Amino acid sequence: MSDSPPGVADLLGVLAYAELTAFLRLAEDAARLAPSLTDRAALSDLAATEYGHFRLLRDRLTDLGIDPEEAMEPFVAPLDDWHRQTTPKDWLEALVKAYVGTGIALDFYREAARTVDAGIRALVDEVLADEGRSEFAVERVRAALEQDPKVAGRLALWARRMVGEALSQGQRVAAARPALAALLVGGEGEDLAEISRMFARLTEAHGKRMAAIGLTPGP
């Protein structure tokens, strides 16, 4: 049995499944949507990095005496649902999803790690490191916008849809897993002021990400 605090198994479990699905989706997008071999290779490198992160989380769960499959299982349905609802139709949508959609999801998990012990927080920081995802997506989307500014509206709508879906799934997960909700906002997850502050931080980070990729004006 694990001696880790309540919520840690959920945090590592949701992160492990998020990284595993990120690996699978990025690899699929590389094969299905990448317009060149260079882009296919670059996205495949990012996918390999995500799998490495999954292995770190799986191993830490095992070290803590927590069965990785049991820790991940509660999050399979909501994360799979999010990916089904946000399947990109083309290369640019795949890039925006990898940067904007995945970004706000990882921000959500980073919030949960603010209250755990230093060792777990260091692991979370390691697996949530950007690893070149931002630079890869920003460069390609900005270049596409320069060539055809008209696609900006479509991509901005796509980004808003993904963020809405991500926040909806996050709320669903937090409601179903009270220990994880307690990591996010403390206590029993009922601190309304802290919930507001958390969503303000998520919204601010999302706005900066959108500006960086060229879909909204900068500050």
Score class of each variant (00 low, 15 high):
V138W: 07
T216A: 07
H53V: 12
L20P: 02
M72H: 10
G218D: 09
L20V: 08
E70P: 00
P149I: 05
P35Y: 04
A166V: 14
L24T: 15
A143S: 05
G214F: 03
P5T: 10
A205H: 01
R114Y: 03
M162S: 08
Y51D: 13
Y109P: 09
V151N: 04
R40H: 06
A200E: 14
E194K: 14
E188R: 12
L11H: 05
A22E: 08
E190Q: 07
V100D: 01
G101F: 02
A122Y: 01
W82I: 09
L157G: 11
Q85R: 11
R201A: 01
T62A: 06
L184A: 15
F136I: 04
A30N: 06
T87M: 03
A113Y: 11
G186R: 06
M198D: 04
T216M: 05
D90Y: 01
D67F: 00
L180V: 13
R25F: 00
G214R: 04
Y99H: 00
L79T: 04
L79I: 03
V100P: 01
F75C: 04
V116I: 15
V127E: 13
L79M: 03
S2Q: 12
S36M: 09
D191V: 02
A118V: 06
L64E: 08
A77L: 13
F199S: 15
A159T: 02
F23Y: 13
S4V: 11
P217G: 01
A71W: 01
E126H: 13
I104E: 10
M198G: 10
L184P: 09
A31E: 14
L56Y: 12
E111F: 06
A47C: 12
P217E: 08
D117R: 01
P78C: 02
E165F: 11
V173Q: 14
E146W: 03
A122M: 05
L123G: 07
P6E: 14
E190M: 00
A48W: 03
P219T: 02
D63W: 09
A94T: 00
D80M: 14
L11C: 06
L215C: 07
V141A: 09
I195E: 08
V173H: 11
L57K: 03
R84F: 02
R55F: 09
R140N: 07
Y99F: 00
L123E: 06
F199C: 15
A179F: 08
T49N: 08
Y51C: 15
